[in-house]
Write a protein that binds this DNA or RNA. Structure first.
Length: 569
RNA sequence: CGGGACGUAGCGCAGCUUGGUAGCGCGCAGCGUUCGGGACGCUGAGGUCGCGGGUUCAAAUCCCGCCGUCCCGACCA
């Protein structure tokens, strides 16, 4: 490819709407252009990177026996109503009406298509297992699309679905894919982690998230400073601190705290540490009122709470709920709460006493509050969000919180979808059973953004060679010097013949522009051919990521470039 | 959905407070010079000032409504 012919106009300045590094640089380097919020055109350079990721994914999927097919994006609503997801997905699913007034949707994921398909084709246990995958655009009407390709309303995803006769077989299929996923992300050159995570709305039991650590990432994970613990923040637990020696229970009495509805305000007013305040959070769990007690310097992890009450939905009390229970928002304490409200406390609460809690009347708190004497706890559970510095459950080391981008997520679904969809096979005795399913997603377009987040510097992108749109750029750093032009052409041809993905910057631009563009686009290796070098019989090779520059004899130019590429990450 | 900001040439922005001929930089076109880290000079093209309504002799500028984009929050494979 010659840059003079490539549809790729770089931007000198950061686009106003781009904030995230990946968004900014993918725009500037002419990989993508925005069409509307969360929807992008993929330009030729961007598409080459996408195709490389697709190729890696295809190879690994095919190698572990999965078969590629293509399912529609435009979907009938009926199967979605059968699984309850037409409602559950809500406004996040794009829904439209065809000319006959029938409801149809754009696919956010494809269980509802693949399960009936397999049921129609593979009616017998003899036909199983099978694993089907596709690489196709997905549609989700995100409440807030953001950060360019990181959270779009349209995104490219590899989704796979395995079908097995029983749970053991399903777990075997799952493990094969788990290993394939490791190979995919390793081959992409990404820094990544695997953690067991919260199942979210897809449901199912076991699931693993593949996370690419990046500052901008929205998914938090927890590690131990000693490297022996790794978990999704939503699932992380901690080693409980030694129970502090509790002072003699003090006399409990009400104090006026006008307007102090927040932990911070109460702490300031009464001059006590936030950790001494007993925070009482109220939730509705499928009609059951639940009070959750945590120390004031802690947050409730709603996902942990939700798991205790699954499948009921857990949501924070709204104004009406406070009123219905006669509670004063901002001044709630556990003292005297009726049996109709379940009282859950985090395990941290058991180790301390003489709390400051809401007095259940406006503008008052109660000090010297102690469990049993002043309030009851129905259950102690692990309910707090882990914070930086908490103790590792394995060795007590300090826990650290990191942010990451989820680039892959795999789930053991069991019969969650096959059952409502009546997707069944006959066993040896002719008895019908729902398939044991598992599903496996990789965000292809998200990997582009995640890699850009992980691999860039002040000058632009620094792709791993597995993902770069081209491996080598031959920069012709002169316009009129005929011998240089001829040598650049020769090196370009020589690299092409060796199968290197090479681009020749033969544009009528100044050398400075070409250098800046080469850095911005992030080819792993640059070969600089100019008058100065050619007259001395040399060319220069620059490794983009390391910045290392070497000068090589002109006769060995192709070898030098190949070596630099070999050495590049 | 709640809070905030922004919308003026392909891109980045000024002008708006205090209404009166629509500007700057980059990019683009032509000519010349230059030619290894976003070159220089001269000439030139390019804008319903997001859309609709209102106030006014006069609106990019003031008022009302709508649309769009981004950021924070809530939510989320």
């Amino acid at each position: 490819m010659r840059l003079s012919h490539l549809f790729a106009r770089t931007l000198r300045e950061d686009p106003a709407e781009a904030d995230a590094a990946s968004h900014r640089l993918l725009m500037r380097a002419a990989f993508i252009r925005q069409v509307m919020a969360g929807v992008y055109t993929t330009l030729p350079l961007g598409l080459r990177t996408v195709r490389k990721i697709e190729a890696i994914v295809r190879e690994e999927m095919d190698a572990c026996g999965a078969q590629e097919l293509r399912m529609p994006i435009l979907l009938p609503s009926d199967p979605w109503k059968a699984t309850g997801r037409w409602e559950a997905y809500g406004d996040e699913m794009f829904k439209l009406t065809d000319r006959h007034g029938r409801e149809v949707g754009l696919g956010p994921t494809q269980e509802e298509v693949v399960a009936p398909l397999v049921a129609g084709e593979l009616p017998s246990y003899r036909d199983l297992p099978v694993n089907l995958y596709q690489i196709e655009w997905k549609y989700r009407d995100e409440r807030r699309p953001r950060y360019g390709l990181l959270r779009g309303r349209e995104f490219l995803m590899k989704d796979a679905y395995s079908f097995d006769v029983d749970e053991d077989a399903m777990r075997r299929s799952y493990d094969v894919m788990l290993q394939a996923y490791h190979r995919v992300f390793a081959r992409c050159g990404l820094d990544y982690l695997v953690v067991e995570a919260d199942p979210g709305s897809i449901g199912g039991d076991v699931n693993h998230e593949f996370m690419a650590p990046a500052e901008i990432g929205e998914d938090l994970y927890v590690t131990c400073e000693n490297g022996d613990y790794l978990a999704d923040l939503e699932a992380a637990s901690q080693h409980l601190p030694e129970a502090a020696s509790v002072d003699e229970p003090a006399k409990s009495e009400d104090v006026a705290t006008p307007g102090a509805t927040s932990v911070a305000a109460v702490a300031r007013l009464l001059e006590v540490p936030e950790s001494q305040i007993l925070k009482t959070m109220l939730f509705d769990a499928g009609g059951q009122a639940v009070a959750v007690l945590v120390p004031g310097d802690r947050e409730v992890n709603e996902k942990k709470l939700a798991r205790l009450y699954s499948p009921s939905q857990v949501r924070a009390f709204d104004e009406d709920a406070f009123e219905a229970h006669g509670l004063v928002r901002g001044f709630v304490g556990p003292q005297g709460l009726g049996q109709e409200i379940a009282i859950l406390a985090d395990r941290l609460v058991s180790g301390a006493g003489n709390w400051v809690a809401g007095a259940n009347r406006p503008d008052h708190h109660t000090v010297g509050v102690n469990v049993t004497r002043d309030f009851r706890v129905d259950r102690y559970e692990d309910l707090v969000q882990i914070s930086e510095g908490d103790r590792c459950p394995n060795d007590g080391g300090a826990l650290r919180i990191g942010s990451s981008i989820v680039v892959g997520h795999i789930y053991q679904l069991g019969t969650l979808y096959s059952e409502p969809l009546k997707a069944t096979f006959a066993d040896e005795d002719g008895i019908e059973h729902p398939y044991q399913m598992a599903c496996y997603g990789i965000g292809i377009s998200r990997i582009v953004a995640a890699a850009a987040e992980q691999f860039h510097d002040d000058d632009g992108l620094t792709w791993p060679k597995a993902l770069a749109p081209f491996e080598v750029c031959v920069v012709l750093a002169t316009r009129d010097h005929e011998p240089s032009v001829a040598q650049a052409e020769a090196i370009y041809e020589g690299l092409s013949e060796r199968g290197v993905e090479v681009v020749l910057d033969d544009r009528a631009e100044s050398a400075g522009v070409k250098f800046k563009d080469a850095d911005l686009i992030g080819y792993p290796v640059q070969v600089v051919v100019g008058k100065r070098g050619i007259e001395a019989g040399t060319i220069d090779v620059k490794a983009r990521r390391s910045g290392e520059r070497t000068t090589a004899p002109l006769a060995a130019a192709v070898d030098a470039a190949s070596r630099a590429l070999q050495a590049a990450p």
